[in-house]
Every structure is written in structure tokens, then in C-alpha cells.
Design a protein around this nucleic acid. Structure first.
Lengths: 183, 183
DNA sequence: GGATTTTACTTTGTACACGATAAATATAGA
DNA sequence: TCTATATTTATCGTGTACAAAGTAAAATCC
């Protein structure tokens, strides 16, 4: 390890550096895709994800929807605000349990979802499918290696992760990959 | 491919699905790490990244800093606003070229950066270094495979990407990995 | 030398994303 | 029954992140 003038350590390891750069580029690509979607279909990635789940689920309470799309309730509330403003979803209070708010997609939303085939995952799926089997499995195990390292780091610092299953708690969020080192 | 009630396609490919889930978990881990940093050191990941670069670079124009940390100028302006409010950076207009704004880290900032050894990348670097060489190179090539797929998708849709070099334009940003499919 | 274009930043507007907290309601227990 | 606790959702505050618009200064063109 060498030290920079700031006193912080920089990666000597070429591979590590490149790995982090690659991760940043991946996130960047996802973000750009979301913005493109917004321009093409008027809906962002998260909005489309929510809407799609909603079309599959029918009328559900907000909490259940949040769980399904792996976002916090606050985030989902915001997304629903934007979607309902454009009348893609309708909210109404539950009769039996009046704390609950039930959400349902409108027919127009269903139409939009049907006509928006180019969700990121679908394009990705298409391209990914072209890879050879060994490439697929290698890709997966590599990513899981990274996940293991990153989530191991967080365990001590974020007790939150311990409460739910890892698959349950390590699913959403997404800003700030910028704390990864620049080239 | 199978269809869900909403009419959208879901990945049949086990590997692909798992890859996307792994990516979400990685991003999630980075995000959580940023929040932990905020609590521990009072600075978020991006803020720390900016500050660290600034300590290394000395007094530089904002644009150069933005390029270094791979963020848009607008984003950097916001981060600098917050940092200068807390007197971690000082801005002054350049004498020779009065369009330019020069930024420099204060001594206190330098101290903070020196005392915050647990940046994500440093912990990651540490753990990553433990891997065997073949694992490192395999990880990198797998990630680059993903980058290639994702950035290829975007080229047609985002003319923006065509203006700058890919390395230049595909570096920052980070929200919304949620458009990736939930488990 | 004045008009036009380019460059460098900031500002504004939109959209996430989270945690913390508040408000409303339901359920349990005394 | 009536208070104590738990659950569910909404709201608020902070911090990214970007594009587009706005401002000011420099460079270039004619």
C-alpha cells in the first residue's frame, strides 16, 4: 500500500481498482437507463417496477407493496404520490382496518405496463442469455464474492442487517456508488 | 420466457436472476455504508470522496474536481455547498479566469480525512486483496462482461453517451437500481 | 472592436432513498 | 371499559443525482 498526500491509502491492486470502476459503470448504466425510460415512456425505473408489481398483485396495502419491490415505505409513498397524481394508481382506505391504505393500478396503468417492454431487466436478460453457461455461472459467483465482502463489512456497523434475512434487507436503495474510488 | 399476469416477461434464467439480485445487494451495501459513515464521521461517502480528492489535489477549479470524482458539476456544487457550510472547503474566484471557482480543503478537513480510515474502498481493498489472483481476475472479467452488456444497451437509447468517451460519461450517478427485478 | 459562441459554474426542478417521527387505528391486558 | 402497546401509513428532513436553464466571463469570428 502506498500513501497519497492526504494520508489515505490507495489500492495498489490493479484488479481491485478495476473492479470498483466496473461497479461504478454498472450503476451508472442503470441510472442512465432509468432516465432514458423516463423520456421514452414517461415513467422511471422505480415507478415502472412499482406499477408492474401492482398490476400483478391487484389491490394491496402499501406496506405489502413496499415489501414486494424492496423499498422503504417512505420511498413507496413518494412514488405512489407521483403515480396517483398522473392517475396510474388509486388509493383508498381499507374498510376493515382503517389504518390501511389500499392501492390499485388503473386500467391505463395496465396498458402502459403492457406497452413498455423495455425494462432494464428484460433487455439485460436478453443479452445475458446469449452468454455461454460457464460465463453465466462465473459471473454469478464473482458477484457473490463481492456481495460477501461488502456485506461482511457492514455487519458490525449496521445491526439492521441482522434483524431480517439478508435477502430481505439487502435488496433496495441505490445512491452513492461514488464513495467507491475514482479511477 | 414466461409471462406474468401484467404481461411482462420474467427471467427464466436462474443465473441472470441471481446476478441482478447480487447487483442490487452490492448497491444496497454501498448505500448502507454511506449512511454508516455519516453517523460515524459526520460525512457521507460522496462528501468524503470529494474531500479526499481535494486534499490530494490542492486548490483546483470545480470542474476539474468534478471530473476527478466522476460527478456532474451540479452535483459537486451541492456537495461543496454542504461542505463549505461546515467550513471543510473554501471557494474563491480565480483571478486570471474569473469564470472559474477555485476550491480548497481547509486544515480541519485534512485532519478529518486523515482520521477517517474506514472509507468503503479501503475496507473493500483490504478484503479483496485476500483473494487469490485467479479470483481477482475472474471477478474483474465478469464485471466487465456486465458493463459491456449494460453500456451496449444504452448506446442506442442515450445519445448522450456518444458525445463523451465511455469512460468519461459512464462514471457517476447511482440511484435506482430498483428497476432491476426484485427477487 | 463589437457580436457570437464557448466555457465554467450555479440554480432550479424532478426523482429517488433512507431514517425519524407523527398520526390514526387496532388489539391486548388490567 | 379504558389505558398501554403495537401496527400501518404518511410526513419531514437530509443527501444524493441529473438535465436544463441561467449567468457571467473568455475566446473567437467578422
Amino acid at each position: 500500500m502506498t500513501e497519497t498526500p492526504s494520508g489515505a491509502f490507495q489500492p495498489d491492486d490493479f484488479f481491485c481498482e478495476q473492479v470498483l470502476i466496473a461497479l461504478r459503470r454498472i450503476i451508472r448504466a442503470v441510472d442512465l437507463r432509468s432516465r432514458t425510460l423516463l423520456q421514452q415512456h414517461g415513467l422511471t425505473g422505480p415507478q415502472l417496477t412499482v406499477l408492474k408489481s401492482l398490476c400483478d398483485m391487484g389491490e394491496v396495502p402499501v406496506g405489502e407493496l413496499a415489501k414486494q419491490v424492496h423499498l422503504s415505505q417512505g420511498t413507496v409513498t413518494g412514488i405512489l404520490d407521483r403515480l396517483s397524481r398522473r392517475e396510474f394508481v388509486v388509493r383508498r382506505r381499507c374498510d376493515v382496518d382503517k389504518r390501511r391504505m389500499l392501492v390499485i393500478a388503473t386500467p391505463q396503468a395496465a396498458a402502459i405496463v403492457r406497452d413498455a417492454p423495455s425494462l432494464l431487466q428484460e433487455q439485460f436478460v436478453h443479452e445475458f442469455a446469449k452468454l455461454a453457461d460457464w460465463e453465466k455461472s462465473q459471473t454469478l459467483s464473482s458477484l457473490q464474492r463481492i456481495v460477501a465482502i461488502m456485506e461482511a463489512e457492514g455487519i458490525g456497523a449496521t445491526p439492521m442487517l441482522a434483524t431480517g434475512a439478508i435477502d430481505e434487507s439487502a435488496e433496495n436503495a441505490a445512491d452513492r456508488l461514488n464513495e467507491l474510488p475514482p479511477a
